[in-house]
């Protein structure tokens, strides 16, 4: 048993740039979403598959710097764009980003299925808007459903990162 995959199919060859690394995708079927290809062809299992219709945010990735649901992107159309998954957020494989660390410290993780998508979304939020209000935080992550936490500890984690980044920059 391992964590990755392939499997043959109809047509298509293209190249995807994920977390700064190039990957050739061959023998794919045109209908494969970016989420499917990331998970089942390239082994990036951080983005999760929970609804396949853009309603839950579990598969959130950055596509040329924009937060999107990988399940709604046709993989072949993302060729030539920069894709960042949760695996590409920390500076190195040993480290955690400040958002990742805060999620652990503040109890924002329970089952953890929504966590990777939320972490990408919070990185995106605080990158765009370093000092969001509580309502802005809620709106920014309203597309990331969590069923375990009731969001309370997630808000705490975001607040902790907001505060520490502002302190670090002042």
């Amino acid at each position: 048993m391992s964590l990755a995959t392939p499997s043959p199919s109809e047509q298509g060859a293209y190249r995807l740039e994920v977390n700064g690394r190039g990957h050739d995708v061959v023998d794919s079927w045109a209908g494969e979403s970016l989420l499917y290809v990331l998970r089942n062809r390239l082994g990036y299992l951080g983005p999760k598959n929970a609804c396949e219709q853009g309603e839950c945010g579990s598969c959130s990735v950055l596509l040329d710097g924009r937060l999107v649901c990988a399940c709604l992107v046709l993989a072949a159309s993302a060729a030539g764009q920069e894709i960042v998954t949760v695996e590409g957020l920390a500076d190195s494989e040993e480290e955690l980003s400040d958002v990742q660390q805060a999620f652990i410290d503040h109890g924002a993780v329970q089952c953890g299925f929504c966590t990777p998508g939320l972490i990408v979304a919070v990185h995106d939020l605080l990158g765009r808007l370093p000092d969001p209000t509580e309502l802005e935080v809620r709106e920014a992550i309203s597309g990331n459903l969590c069923r375990c936490t009731g969001y309370g500890r997630i808000f705490e984690a975001v607040e902790a990162v907001r505060r520490s980044r502002l302190e670090a920059s002042s």
């Binding site: 045109a30 979403s33 219709q53 709604l72 046709l74």
Partner: peptide
């Protein structure tokens, strides 16, 4: 034709639309 994919790709994911050829409008 597919742009953001927020409608069409859902139909494809759910097996309600059998994709043959498709043009991405995003570029």
């Amino acid at each position: 034709l597919v742009a953001g994919g927020t409608d069409l790709v859902v139909e494809v994911n759910f097996g309600r639309h059998r994709l043959e050829d498709v043009a991405s409008l995003s570029r």
